[in-house]
Nucleic acid binder design. Structure first.
Length: 765
DNA sequence: CTCACGCTCTTTTTT
DNA sequence: AGAGCGTGAG
C-alpha cells in the first residue's frame, strides 16, 4: 500500500490503528504531522467518509497546513474532513446548536481587547480607577477562573474568586458575565465553556454531533486545558475512536490553562489505550538534537525518552555573546548575509526567534537596512490596529446591534460631536428603560439637549442596517464595506488629517477591503456574521493579503511560542539571557523554570541544519539599560556541543561616545555626526574572542560596506537631505565610487536610488 | 466638544 | 521608545 511506503514501523502502526483510543507520544521532528495526515488518508481509503473525521490543532496555521496536506494525499474529498482549531470548532458547534442552551445565532466574539473594554466600563461604573485596577489583570483573572476544572464542574463561582483584593472582584466578575450576556457576546474562554455546557445539557445536539463525527484526532494534546479535554471526551465517547498526539517536552501553554495531566493521564482515562512512541527524529542533525537534549534532561517532571537522530552529525551549535541588542541584531543579519552568499541558503530558510514580541524591532531595523525581505508572524496584529478595529466595529454592530462596546466605539468615530456626556446619558436611559442603547438612539428617546450629530449617526446606521440584511445575496460584502468607509465619513476624516500616519491608516483600510474581497472569492456565500467570526479567530497572520503559500521568499521572525510545529534550516534563538529566557516572571517557581526550559527546547528543535543562540550583555528596555547574564540553559550544555563566538557592535554601550540610535527608522532622530564632527560609520566592528570552528565565520565580518570617505561621496550614510521632487529624505546606503556613486535614499517608507552625479541634493544640517 | 501637548506606564507567551 | 490618557486652552 502506497500510503505506508515512506513510514517507519511505529509510524505505520499509528496509521493502521484506526479504532479505539490511541496515544501517540511524538518527539520533536518525529514526523507527527505526517502520521496524522496519513492516518486520515488511510481512514478514507478504508471507507470512512471524510466528513466523519474530526481533527483539531491549536493554531490556524497548523490547521490550514493539515488540511492542505490531507488534500494533497487524498484529493478534493479531503476538504470535507473537519479540520479546525479548538476555538473555531467551538464556534461551528455553537452556531449550529447553541440555541439549545439559549444562545442566539448572531453572537459576537470578544477578543482580549474587547474584553478589556468591557471591564474598563465596569470599573468606571464601580468608581474604580482603571489605572490602579488594571483591566488586563482582571481579564486574565477571569480567564484563569474559566480555565479551571472546578468552574466547569459547577463549583460555586464565589469560592473560586480571589477575595484578597481591596476591591470587590466578585462584583466585577458577575457584572462582566452580565454585560457579556447583554451584549450577546462570548469571550475566547466562553466559546469552550459554552460548548461543554451544550454537550452536557443537550443530548440531542450531542447525539447529532456523534453521528456526524466518528473519528477524532487531537494534535498538541499536551497543551489542552480542561474544557478542551472535556469536549474531546464527550464528542468521542460514543465511538472511543480518539487519537491524541503530543509531547510533554513541548508543553508551553500552562499559563493559559493547559494541563499537562491530560496527556499524562490519557491511558488512565481510556483503559484500552494503545500507546505508540515516535522517537526517530528526521528533522535535525545529531549535533542539534544532542544540544537540545542536554538542556531538556534537566527537567524533573518529564518522561525520559530516547530520541534517535536519523540525520548525520552536522555542525555544532553556535553560541554568540554580543555586547548589546544592536550587536545581536548585527550578528544575526550578518550571519544570514554570509550564509546566503556562501552556502546558497534562501531567505525562507532562516527564522529568528525571540521570547517577547518587543524584541522584534531591532531585527526588523537591521533587515530593512540590508534590504532583506522578512515577515513577522504574530506581533502587532493587523486586526488590532485602531482603524481596522473601528471599521470592523461598524460591521460588528450592524450584525449585532446589542453590542454596546461596538456602538460606543463607532458612535463618535469619526467625531460627530457626540461626546462623553451624551454617551453617558444614552447609557442611563437604556438602563432605566431596560432596553439597548441602540434602541434609545433609534427611537429618539433622548431628552434634553440632543447633539446634532446623533441624528446623522442614526440615519447612517439605519440605512446601513437595511443594507446589511441583503449581504451576500444582493450586495457583496466587500462593496458594502467600501461604501461604509465612505458614508460614515471615516475615510474623509482621515483624508482631511493628511498626515503620514492617517495616510497609512487609509492604506490599511484599503488592505482590509482587499482582504474581504479575497475572502469572498473563497467563501462566496458567507454572511457578515460568518466573516466577523472568522476573523475574530484568525489572528495568526499579521497581514491578511499575504498568501500562506509563501511565494515570497522571506526571512521569518516570530516568538518561540509561535514557532511550535514549524521547522527551518537555520534558526536563531535570540535573547538567551537570564530574565529573558527564562523570563523574569517565571523565575520564582521550579515549574516556571521548567516551562521556560521547554520553550528553549522547542526553539532549538525547530532547526534542521544550523542553530545559533545569542545573548546580549546589555539590553535596553523602557526601564533603561540592564546588564544580563547568559541564560542558565546555555550552561546546561556541555562545552563540546558549543561553538563559542562573540560579537561587539560599535553602537551604544561600548564605553566611549554617546549612544547612537543608528538604525532607528524614526526620522526625527538622526545622528549624522559624532562629537568630532566626522561622519558616523555605519559598519560596526567585530571581534572574536575565540576562534570559530567554521571557516565562514572567519570572513563573516570582514566584508566592508563602502564608506563615504572611501567612495568620495559628498554625503554619508544616515545624513538628511532635501530632494527637489521628493522632499526630505535620508541616505540609506552609498555604493560605487567617483562618477558612479549611487545613493539609496529613503523618503518615509519609500526608497529610491539616485546617481549622485545627476541629482541636485541639498544638505540639511 | 475638540485638539494639542505632555505625562505616565508599559512588556511575557495566545486562542 | 511609543502608545494611551488626562489636562487645559480655544
Amino acid at each position: 500500500m502506497d500510503l505506508l511506503k515512506n513510514l517507519n514501523d511505529n509510524q505505520k502502526e499509528a496509521v493502521l490503528h484506526t479504532d479505539g483510543p490511541l496515544l501517540i507520544l511524538a518527539g520533536a521532528g518525529s514526523g507527527k504531522t505526517r502520521v496524522i495526515t496519513h492516518r486520515i488518508a488511510h481512514l478514507i481509503a478504508n471507507g470512512v467518509k471524510p466528513y466523519h473525521i474530526f481533527a483539531v490543532t491549536f493554531t490556524n496555521k497548523a490547521a490550514e497546513e493539515m488540511r492542505n496536506r490531507v488534500m494533497s494525499i487524498v484529493g478534493p474529498q479531503g476538504s470535507s474532513v473537519f479540520v479546525k482549531t479548538f476555538h473555531s470548532a467551538a464556534v461551528y458547534i455553537l452556531r449550529r446548536f447553541g440555541e439549545d442552551i439559549g444562545l442566539t445565532r448572531n453572537f459576537t466574539i470578544y477578543d482580549g481587547g474587547d474584553q478589556e473594554d468591557v471591564i474598563k466600563r465596569i470599573l468606571i461604573s464601580m468608581r474604580l480607577d482603571p489605572k490602579k485596577v488594571k483591566p488586563s489583570m482582571i481579564s486574565s483573572k477571569i480567564s484563569e477562573i474559566k480555565d479551571k476544572e472546578a468552574y466547569l464542574e459547577g463549583v460555586d463561582v464565589n469560592s473560586l474568586l480571589p477575595d484578597n483584593y481591596s476591591f470587590n472582584f466578585s462584583e466585577i466578575f458577575s457584572q462582566y458575565q452580565q454585560k457579556m450576556a447583554e451584549n450577546n457576546a462570548l469571550d475566547f474562554n466562553d466559546l469552550l465553556c459554552k460548548t461543554v455546557d451544550l454537550v452536557r445539557k443537550s443530548p440531542s445536539a450531542l447525539a447529532e454531533m456523534q453521528r456526524m463525527w466518528r473519528y477524532f484526532m487531537i494534535d498538541e494534546y499536551q497543551d489542552t486545558n480542561y474544557s478542551q479535554y472535556l469536549i474531546a471526551k464527550y464528542l468521542s465517547s460514543a465511538t472511543k475512536n480518539i487519537c491524541v498526539v503530543g509531547d510533554d517536552d513541548q508543553s508551553i501553554y500552562s499559563w493559559r490553562g493547559a494541563d499537562i495531566r491530560n496527556i499524562l493521564n490519557f491511558e488512565k482515562d481510556y483503559d484500552t489505550t494503545k500507546v505508540i512512541t515516535l522517537e526517530e527524529n528526521y528533522r535535525s542533525t545529531k549535533q542539534i538534537l544532542d544540544a537540545a537534549h542536554s538542556i531538556i534532561k534537566h527537567n524533573e517532571t518529564r518522561k525520559e525518552k530516547d530520541i534517535k537522530a536519523f540525520r548525520g552529525d552536522g555542525e555544532p551549535l553556535t553560541w554568540c555573546k554580543t555586547n548589546n541588542e544592536y550587536g545581536e541584531g548585527e550578528f544575526v543579519v550578518n550571519t544570514i548575509v554570509s550564509l546566503k552568499s556562501k552556502e546558497n541558503f534562501k531567505n525562507h530558510d532562516f527564522a529568528v526567534f525571540y521570547r517577547t514580541n518587543a524584541q522584534s524591532r531591532i531585527f526588523e531595523d537591521f533587515l530593512r537596512r540590508e534590504r532583506l525581505p522578512y515577515r513577522i508572524i504574530g506581533g502587532q496584529k493587523f486586526y488590532e490596529r485602531k482603524e481596522i478595529k473601528d471599521i470592523l466595529a461598524y460591521l460588528k454592530f450592524l450584525v449585532n446591534p446589542a453590542d454596546s462596546i461596538a456602538l460606543f466605539r463607532i458612535i463618535n468615530t469619526p467625531a460627530r460631536g457626540i461626546g462623553k456626556a451624551s454617551q453617558d446619558r444614552i447609557s442611563e436611559i437604556a438602563k432605566e428603560q431596560n432596553i439597548s442603547e441602540w434602541k434609545v438612539i433609534q427611537d429618539e428617546l433622548m431628552t434634553g439637549r440632543v447633539p446634532k450629530g446623533l441624528d446623522d449617526f442614526r440615519k447612517i446606521i439605519d440605512k446601513l442596517l437595511k443594507e446589511t440584511v441583503q449581504i451576500p445575496s444582493r450586495i457583496k460584502l466587500s462593496a458594502f464595506m467600501k461604501n461604509l468607509v465612505d458614508v460614515t465619513g471615516y475615510r474623509e476624516s482621515l483624508r482631511e488629517e493628511n498626515t503620514m500616519e492617517s495616510n497609512s491608516r487609509i492604506d490599511n483600510i484599503d488592505e482590509l477591503i482587499n482582504s474581504i474581497f479575497d475572502y469572498e472569492q473563497s467563501e462566496p456565500d458567507a454572511t457578515p456574521e460568518q466573516f466577523i467570526q472568522d476573523i475574530a479567530l484568525y489572528t495568526s497572520e499579521q497581514n491578511p493579503e499575504e498568501n500562506p503559500d509563501e511565494k515570497t521568499d522571506c526571512i521569518t521572525l516570530m516568538t518561540v511560542h509561535n514557532a511550535k510545529g514549524l521547522e527551518f534550516p537555520v534558526v536563531f534563538l535570540t535573547g538567551m539571557e537570564e530574565g529573558t529566557i527564562p523570563h523574569k516572571f517565571s523565575l520564582d517557581t521550579e515549574q516556571g523554570i521548567e516551562e521556560e526550559r521547554r520553550l528553549c527546547y522547542v526553539g532549538i528543535t525547530r532547526a534542521m541544519d544550523r542553530i545559533y543562540l545569542t545573548n546580549a550583555e546589555l539590553r535596553r528596555s523602557y526601564a533603561g539599560p540592564e546588564n544580563k547574564m547568559p541564560s542558565r540553559f546555555i550552561d546546561e550544555m556541555p562545552w563540546e556541543f558549543i561553538n563559542r563566538v562573540s560579537y561587539v557592535s560599535q553602537g551604544y554601550g561600548g564605553g566611549e561616545s554617546s549612544f547612537r540610535s543608528s538604525y532607528s527608522n524614526n526620522e526625527n532622530r538622526q545622528y549624522v555626526a559624532n562629537r568630532t564632527g566626522n561622519p558616523v560609520q555605519s559598519q560596526s566592528q567585530s571581534q572574536f574572542q575565540s576562534k570559530p570552528k567554521e571557516s565562514y565565520l572567519d570572513e563573516l565580518f570582514a566584508e566592508k560596506k563602502i564608506e563615504s570617505d572611501e567612495s568620495g561621496s559628498k554625503f554619508s550614510v544616515k545624513e538628511s537631505i532635501m530632494h527637489p521632487k521628493f522632499g526630505t529624505g535620508r541616505i540609506v546606503s552609498i555604493e560605487g565610487t567617483g562618477d558612479n556613486i549611487k545613493l539609496t535614499i529613503s523618503f518615509g517608507v519609500t526608497r529610491r536610488v539616485f546617481m549622485e552625479k545627476y541629482t541636485p541634493l541639498q544638505k540639511l544640517n
